[in-house]
Amino acid sequence: MSQKPAWLVAHGTPWKAGVERVAFESGWITVTEQIATAPTGRPAPYGLVRFKNLAVAVLPIHEDGTVTLVGQHRFPLGDYSWELPEGGAPLGEDPLAGARRELAEETGLAAADWREVMRAQLSNSVTDEQMIGYVAMGLSTAPGGHQADDTEAIALVRAPFREALDAALAGYLPDMLTVAMLLRGYHMAREGSLPGALSRAMLG
């Protein structure tokens, strides 16, 4: 990762948390309510979604420059989503272990070469969810194969990288982890951060 620019500094007074009340809790999230104090000094009612997992996303790149995508119905928006393999790693777990597990469970793939390439905050105005993204190369069949959990009805497709990227930028792959990781992969291929033959296959 590149060096942090000198102009990336905080300014002003930070938010101050108030007394939290748990409004809802599940195995995945806790929703809290509180009266916080804004940087301006004004009281501000705040609802906050706290996540019990770190989001992990995997960009699995095959030697021919194709990527494996996962298709499934998503409940919140009631739509069908093609996206990269992704899921949650419990807080305190090695995120790479979570990424390896998600790749194997959703696609039946294992990877010999893993590279952490991105960290991001997801919807940081109302949640504390964070993500780590990995590029996975040297792909092979995972021991045990595809093992989705009992709520996942998953389809798989192997698509040319540029087609997947173009589809994401056109809005056909709207999942933000997928968009971000495909753009990161494109940047790495253009900047020479991936093996030359693989970059050429991806950009071809």
Rank of each mutant, 00 (worst) to 15 (best):
A111H: 07
E129Q: 11
D128V: 01
D113H: 08
R100C: 00
A99L: 01
V117F: 02
T107P: 13
A104Q: 12
Q121L: 07
E105H: 06
N124K: 04
L103Y: 01
A104G: 11
A120Q: 11
R101N: 06
E129S: 09
E106W: 02
G108N: 09
Q121H: 09
E105S: 13
G108H: 05
A110V: 03
V117W: 05
T107F: 03
E102M: 09
N124Q: 09
V117H: 01
V126L: 06
Q121N: 12
V126I: 14
G108L: 03
S125F: 07
A111R: 12
W114T: 14
D113I: 05
A104V: 00
E116W: 01
L103W: 03
R115T: 15
W114G: 12
S123T: 14
L122F: 10
A111T: 02
Q130V: 14
Q130Y: 04
E129A: 10
M118A: 12
S125M: 08
L103D: 00
T127P: 12
D128M: 00
M118L: 15
E129L: 14
E105D: 10
V126H: 13
R119N: 13
E105Y: 01
E102H: 07
N124H: 07
D128R: 00
L122G: 08
G108P: 14
E129V: 11
A110L: 06
N124S: 11
D113T: 10
E105M: 10
A111S: 10
R101T: 01
R119E: 15
L109S: 13
R100V: 01
D128P: 10
L103E: 00
D113K: 04
Q130C: 11
W114D: 13
R119D: 14
V126G: 08
A99C: 05
S123M: 13
Q130F: 03
E106G: 07
L103K: 12
D128L: 00
E102P: 03
A104H: 02
L103P: 12
E129K: 08
T107H: 07
Q130W: 06
D128A: 07
Q130A: 13
A110F: 01
A110W: 01
E116H: 11
E129Y: 03
E129M: 11
R115K: 08
W114H: 10
D128C: 06
D113M: 05
N124T: 05
E105K: 07
T107G: 09
E129H: 09
V126T: 15
R101Q: 12
S125R: 10
M118H: 12
N124I: 06
T127D: 01
M118Y: 02
N124F: 03
L103Q: 04
L109R: 14
R100A: 00
A120L: 11
E106C: 07
A112Y: 03
N124P: 15
A99S: 11
A111K: 04
S125V: 08
E116Y: 01
L109E: 11
V117D: 14
A110S: 15
D128I: 04
E102V: 04
Q121E: 14
A99P: 04
T127S: 15
T107A: 00
E102N: 10
D113C: 04
A104C: 01
G108F: 02
D113W: 06
D128K: 04
E105N: 12
S123C: 09
